[in-house]
Simulated assay, not measured.
Amino acid sequence: MLKIGITGQAGFVGSHLYNTLGLFQEQFERIDFKKEYFEDENKLDDFVSQCNVIVHLAAMNRHNDPQVIYDTNLSLVQKLVNSLNKTNSKAHVLFSSSTQEERDNLYGKSKKEGRELMIHWANNSDGKFTGMIIPNVFGPFGHPNYNSVIATFCHKLSHNEVPTIDVDGDLKLIYVGELVDVILTEIRSGKGNPEVLVKHTSESKVSQILKFLEMYKAEYQDKGIIPCINNKFELNLFNTFRCYMDIKNHFPVKFVEHTDSRGSFVEIIRLGVGGQVSFSTTVPAITRGNHYHTRKIERFAVIKGKALIQLRRIGTDEILDFYLDGNEPSFVDMPIWYTHNIKNIGEEVLYTNFWINEFYDPSDPDTYFENV
């Protein structure tokens, strides 16, 4: 079993990689890393000595002073190299560089020179090195005004602010889940490669991305409509947007109920995509679910009875509780990477409608069990 450590474990790409490794516990053991290890040689040495594989993601992306970025990033690489030498490590080290290597800026220079330091270490040791040159990365849980323009746009729109475009350039992009797949492929290969050009999976102008996100805000956040999604990039962009919403205060969303002498009518969902609709009955005190998805869009709509729906983002401790009552029909949507469940907390049978954007495929269910 490979023992894998990730510098920058708590960061944007690092947290996605760490959580995905957790899906393959029969193959990988995760060695936890904390950023303060870089300030304590003994702790860093202990971490390095435990790892068969080290993915070096720790880096500074933005700062008012570019020289601070350069100095910080080179210092982190040098500290890692010193520890590798000190512990006589034979680890496979994977390094995240950037397509900005060839640009005339100190961030790109720090990544290029950092990769060269790692190549020098590998050439003079029994270790292996893979240097990945990565395009712009986007996805859920990135920091606005830091990780990407998409993170900034998503945060601003979902919090009713107005984003602006500084330069309407063409962006070559890769979704964070796709980047994690590339990293896992390199890890599994067990082969070093000093220059892996990670291919972008989509390309778009900044203005077009903003148009998509504005549409998701208007259709999904404001009206509850699942928008038309034409390809994988749009699905990834939509799932990214959903994770920037104020989930705690947005859900549950009450339906518009039309009532007359015959009874009532409630429209459950308007779709720009297909998918699968189902319903369930749940007897009192029973809990369903306790699983999460990494790509699927899902809606729970309570139409009769009383329910508690709980969500918790993987890797965090905060549990979000949503109380729904069929007397006022309402729904909660499940963001990706949030484990969720539904419990009948009433005294009668609970009736719930479920919609999900994919037909169920037992060979690729995208369903991972973890208690909320």
Rank of each mutant, 00 (worst) to 15 (best):
K79Q: 12
E101R: 09
T339L: 02
A122N: 01
A91K: 14
P362Q: 04
K223F: 03
M132V: 06
F12H: 10
V149K: 02
D104R: 08
G305P: 03
I309G: 05
I268E: 10
Y338R: 04
I303K: 02
F300R: 01
V283M: 11
N344K: 06
N145R: 12
R270P: 01
K79T: 07
F255Q: 06
V196F: 14
L57N: 07
F33T: 05
I303Y: 09
E161S: 09
K223G: 02
F24C: 01
D181F: 10
S15Q: 06
F47A: 00
V283A: 11
D260G: 08
V182W: 00
R270D: 13
Y220C: 11
P365W: 07
F233G: 03
V167C: 05
Y292I: 01
K86D: 05
I31E: 03
K128G: 04
N341T: 12
G22F: 08
L17M: 14
M334S: 11
F138N: 01
T72A: 12
E257W: 06
V149I: 14
E203H: 14
E39F: 14
I342Y: 01
P194H: 12
T294G: 01
R270F: 03
K3P: 00
V198N: 05
N52G: 03
G8T: 12
Y216P: 02
